[in-house]
Structures are given as C-alpha cells and as structure tokens.
Write a protein that binds this DNA or RNA. Sequence first.
DNA 1: GGTAACCTGAATCGGCCGTTCCGGTTACCT
DNA 2: AGGTAACCGGAACGGCCGATTCAGGTTACC
Lengths: 173, 173
Amino acid sequence: MRADARRNRERIVTSALELFAERGPGVSMEEIAREAGLGVGTLYRHFPDRRALVEEIATSALLGLEAEIRLLTAKDVSRWDVLTQVVAYCTAQPLALVKSIAEGDAVPPERHALQSKVDGLLRGLVQEVQDEGSMRRDISPAEIVEILNTAVCRPGARAGDAVTRVMLDGLSS
Amino acid sequence: MRADARRNRERIVTSALELFAERGPGVSMEEIAREAGLGVGTLYRHFPDRRALVEEIATSALLGLEAEIRLLTAKDVSRWDVLTQVVAYCTAQPLALVKSIAEGDAVPPERHALQSKVDGLLRGLVQEVQDEGSMRRDISPAEIVEILNTAVCRPGARAGDAVTRVMLDGLSS
DNA sequence: GGTAACCTGAATCGGCCGTTCCGGTTACCT
DNA sequence: AGGTAACCGGAACGGCCGATTCAGGTTACC
C-alpha cells in the first residue's frame, strides 16, 4: 500500500470517529470525507460501503476500550479509581457514541461477542467497586453500567464535565 | 369548530407530544397522524406545516411547565422537594424532549421569551435550594439547570428512574 | 334533508445520502 | 528521468423517505 493511501485511511478513521462522537449517527459519508480533507471517492476506495466503515470503527473502538480496561484493572489502586479512569477514557476517546451508533446497524456476531466481553469486564469491575464498598449497592452492576453508558454516550460529553462528575458522585457511597 | 374537529386537534397534539418524548425528533408527520388514528390530511387541516405543530406543542409544554413550577413553588415544603417534584413533572409529562426538539428550528422571539422566563424560574429555584443548604454549591445554578435538562431530556427517561435518582443524589449535599 | 365543514390516503415534489465512475494526479521503482 | 499502477477528486446517478397537496367521500349540525 502506498504511503499516502495508508495516511488517508488513517485520516478517514480518525475523522469518522470524531464526527460520530460529536454529532451522533447520521453523519454523512461526504462530511466524513470533507473532515478528512479528502473526496468521497477516496473514502469508498478504502471502505466498500458505510457499514464497513462503521464496523471498523466500532470494532477498533471496542478493542481499544478492552485493552484500556485490562491495563487499568492491572494497576494497584482502588477499584473506584480504576472505574473513574475507565469512564474518563470513554469520554476522552471519542469512542463515546460509537457503541450506540454501531448498534443502529445489525450487529454482526463477531462484534456482538466482543461487545459482550467488554460489557462483562465492566460489570465485573463495577461489582468489585461495590464489594470494595465505595459504590452504592442498591443498583445492580448491569444497570450501573447502563447508567454510565448514558453518561458517556452523550453528544458533547467531555471527560470530567459537570454531568459526569455529578453522575459519579451520585453513584459513590 | 365542529366537535369532532376539536377532538381530533386534541388527539394530534397529544400523540405528537408522546411520540416526540419517546422517540425524539425525526418523528414523521405520518407517524403522528397514525398514532392519533387519523389521516395525514387531517393533521394538515389543523396545522399548516410541521413547524406550526412543533411551535404549538413547544409553547403549550412550556406554559404547562411554567404553571407547574409556580404551583409547586407556592407550596410550603423544602425547596429541595419542590425541585424534585419539578423534575418528576418534567419526566412524567412527556414534554421531556420537546424543548430540545423545538430548538432544532429557529426559535421565534415569542417562544424565546417564554423559554427565558422558565429558565429564570428554574435557576431561581435552584439558587434557593442551594441557599437552603441541600444542594452542592460548587456548580452554578445555570449549569445545574443544564444538567437537569440532560437528565430529563433523554429518550426513554422515566420519572424516578435510576439515572434520574443517581443524578439527584449526585446533586444533593 | 341539506350543506359546509371535515376526513382520508394515494400521489406529488424535493432534498438528502449512499454509491459509482472516469479523467486527472502521484508515489515509487528502475 | 520516465513509466506505470495505484490513488485521488468530485460531479452525477438512483433510491428512499418524509413533508405537503388534493380530489373525492363522510359527517356533524342546523
């Protein structure tokens, strides 16, 4: 693959991620191309169709999150801090909305598996946070993950913004 | 106006409010008509175009909210309880998303004035809650109102659901 | 019973978006 | 430097979806 092609592919993914994160689904292919400083044709050279693009982004976002969770989980700090940092990662990375966007399309089995794995990790972490005693217990881990999701998958969400802080304070015990 | 016409107009407004609340903007005129058990033509008999419908709904929702705030504010209970009930009203009434939807269109001056008035009332109430000492002071009333807005204007928001509870807990002091 | 008001929903009209395609450009190898 | 395959740009096409219209049937009310 030629150097410029590789670079352009990169740009496309980056731009798409960004746009999805800040404007939600419904961003058009043309907008993505423009944001990347390329023509639509180039976009289609790299991804056969919209689904392929979404798929790539969703999958790589999930993989990134999974890696991050494992990394943070391995640290020797309170589970609460780990969770906080995971949340921060989710809002800082523009992967925020990707999950929900990707759910608009039919979820292919491979991504579904990955999704479940990440969800499992998150629920496990939340469980540990509760066991450690720093999080309220009157809400189930699954539901808490969902709550965090709504906090993070919000157009315009920023790491450490007021909504996120309030949310986390409301979850702590 | 004939009795059936009045009834149908009513139905249209109700259905639109409901659909907007539970499915967000982007609900089509046909869906609204169907939900109301009417043909699209009837809808257009009562409202010249989509904007007119949205306008009516937004305005009446705001007026309703204003009335509710004044009513609750007059009660002799803690300001915190008043705020809680206002929030509950906002999520129970399907006026939840109306505000944000109505903002998609250009906001006509008259509605803008109404909007500001309601915002003022809310900020004032929040200020009182803070003065009473039951709410954290490290976030400004304006921002808190905005936070509450995101809590309430959420597709699928229900009065007293987990997200709302967590949010309010996070705001209390 | 008559009539104006009302209702219906298929058809129309636009706009937006994904996708294609071909003429022009460029990286890179020899 | 020159050649060529890979790459890029962006106008143009086709489909879809939603707002709006309208001709023809129905109904409330006097």
